[in-house]
Design a binder for these strands. Structure first.
Length: 472
RNA sequence: GCGCCCAUCGUCUAGCGGUCCAGGACGUCGCCCUUUCACGGCGAAAACACGGGUUCGAUUCCCGUUGGGCGCGCCA
């Protein structure tokens, strides 16, 4: 039995967007599931649009998502000679021919077809023309001599059997007039040469599968097993475009999502395994299967992603999550500013506050936000809601509490708690009545980790100072 | 315009002819827990797009309608 090989083949014209990330994930998962290989190929035959920055962004995105590929990255551009060779072979065997149409001529042709209500397709005007009629000074393209009769069958792992009438598949360009291959030729040649057995990609390629099948047939090569997965739409159901939530995966990192959470979210978009929602890495690999991939497009839902992220954050142990947090800090919204102010002492404080912080955070960014009170300078900026609490009797409690806390011989969560509770009982108030004003004075907000932990982490001087700032 | 794909709660989905007055998850709304928030627990509202068939019986099969999507480049 031969080894199964999948691949992810993005074109480096921009960042790794969320749809591409899922395609990569599915390919990676399938390869892992069957113990095969997952390859990475950069489709950069279009030299005009490809940029090294985009290549780097894609690799960076994949690495962040922890989707490791086997072997070296293949740059399609480096394989032009082989592509040309194959184009020539097709020419020699009669499976391709030279077309001397100019771009302007083709545009005009399509324009006429559109006006006449016909499908825009190359009309094959050079298909059977004698080469001696070739005009001077026009560099030809090489076109596939596509089969015109019958139909082409795609036996797809997720779409099932799909039939395309051959009359709708025109003679596509294999080699451009400048001698460079088109995507259609390059994918076929590279997938073949790289031993790709399974092509898992977005279903926007479904029609291409039929066209590429004809190229494979012309070459006498085995057609890979296809699996066209449904696309992801924006939250509003519209196509995911640049202006519609098609962010690069780096944006998700900046929003504080964990790679394992994003992976879990993505895999459940279009794929399911009974009622199971959360998967560990191993579970996902073991359970993943192309046959359980659905055929309808799905919408991107941040609420669900966020929920999953919270789940994974809670499932990660304290030390590991702290490390993850520090590692990701420079990429997070508001992170660089915090990182710049991170000295030994601050680091120790965050570490101490971390268990309380992580409990209520659903993203890494919420961790940054939750830790703000550690970085604030006196006198603190008080949020409106917090000011409200202070104004409605809160300051009086602080005034009463201040001397008692000041008198404390030992400063800890336990000792401060004892004092605050005792005071609460004295005045016959629920703990919240006293705790909220404290929280507001200490953090400037109405929400924070447990107030005694805050007191403890902030330390005696800073705590008493902040309380004094607000006490009557 | 032509070809192809899709269609279960707001969202992601389970369902592969009877077990479905349709199950889970997120979100929403109550209640509980509580030191705020978050977590957790309990509960509620919420869907088979429509019309024809096939069948003893359709959410499940077929056809059509409607609504979405994708493709139709010397882009990938």
């Amino acid at each position: 039995m031969s080894e199964i090989v999948t691949r992810f083949a993005p074109s480096p014209t921009g960042f790794l967007h969320i749809g591409g990330a899922r395609t990569a994930l599915f390919n990676w998962l399938y390869a892992k599931h069957v113990g095969g290989k997952f390859l990475l190929r950069i489709e950069d035959t279009d030299r005009e649009r490809s940029t090294p920055e985009a290549v780097e962004a894609i690799l960076d995105g994949l690495r962040w998502l922890e989707l490791d590929w086997d072997g070296d990255v293949v740059h399609q551009f480096t394989r032009v000679e082989r592509h040309r060779e194959i184009a020539m072979r097709m020419l020699a065997s009669g499976n391709a021919y030279r077309c001397y149409c100019t771009p302007a001529e083709l545009t005009e042709m399509r324009e006429k077809q559109r006006l006449a209500g016909l499908p825009p397709r190359y009309d094959g005007r050079w298909r059977d023309r004698d080469p001696s009629e070739a005009p001077n000074g026009v560099a030809p393209t090489i076109r596939l001599r596509a089969t015109q009769e019958g139909e082409t069958l795609i036996d797809d792992k997720v779409q099932g059997k799909v039939v395309f009438p051959n009359k709708d598949l025109d003679d596509l360009v294999l080699l451009r007039s400048d001698g460079n291959p088109t995507y259609m030729l390059a994918v076929v040649v590279d997938d073949h040469d790289m031993g790709v057995t399974h092509a898992i990609r977005g279903d926007d390629h479904l029609t291409n599968a039929a066209r590429q099948t004809q190229i494979y047939q012309g070459l006498g090569w085995d057609v890979p097993i296809w699996a066209h997965i449904p696309l992801i739409h924006g939250p509003d159901g519209a196509k995911l475009s640049k202006r519609h939530g098609a962010l690069g995966v780096d944006a998700y990192r900046a929003m504080g999502y964990l790679p394992e959470a994003l992976r879990n979210y993505l895999v459940r978009l279009g794929w399911s395994h009974g009622d199971k929602e959360m998967f560990s890495q191993d579970e996902m690999i073991a359970a993943f299967d192309l046959s359980a991939v659905g055929r309808s497009a799905s919408r991107f839902d941040y609420a669900r992603l966020e929920n999953m992220n919270g789940h994974f954050m809670r499932a990660t142990d304290d030390a590991a999550l702290f490390q993850q947090f520090l590692k990701t800090l420079p990429y997070l919204a508001g992170g660089p500013e915090m990182a710049a102010r991170l000295d030994e002492a601050k680091l120790a404080q965050i570490r101490a506050a971390f268990p309380g912080l992580r409990e209520r955070a659903k993203t890494l960014v919420e961790l940054v936000d939750g830790a703000q009170y550690l970085f604030a300078h006196r006198p603190l900026a008080i949020e409106p809601k917090a000011e409200d609490v202070l104004a409605k009797g809160g300051r009086l409690h602080l005034k009463m509490l201040l001397p008692r806390l000041t008198a404390l011989a030992e400063w800890s969560a336990a000792t401060t708690e004892a004092v605050v509770r005792a005071y609460g009982e004295e005045i016959g108030a629920k703990l919240g009545t006293v705790a909220q004003p404290l929280r507001c004075a200490l953090t400037g907000r109405t929400t924070s980790p447990g107030i005694f932990d805050v007191l403890s982490v902030l330390g005696r001087d800073e705590s008493l100072g902040r309380i004094a700032d607000q006490a009557i």
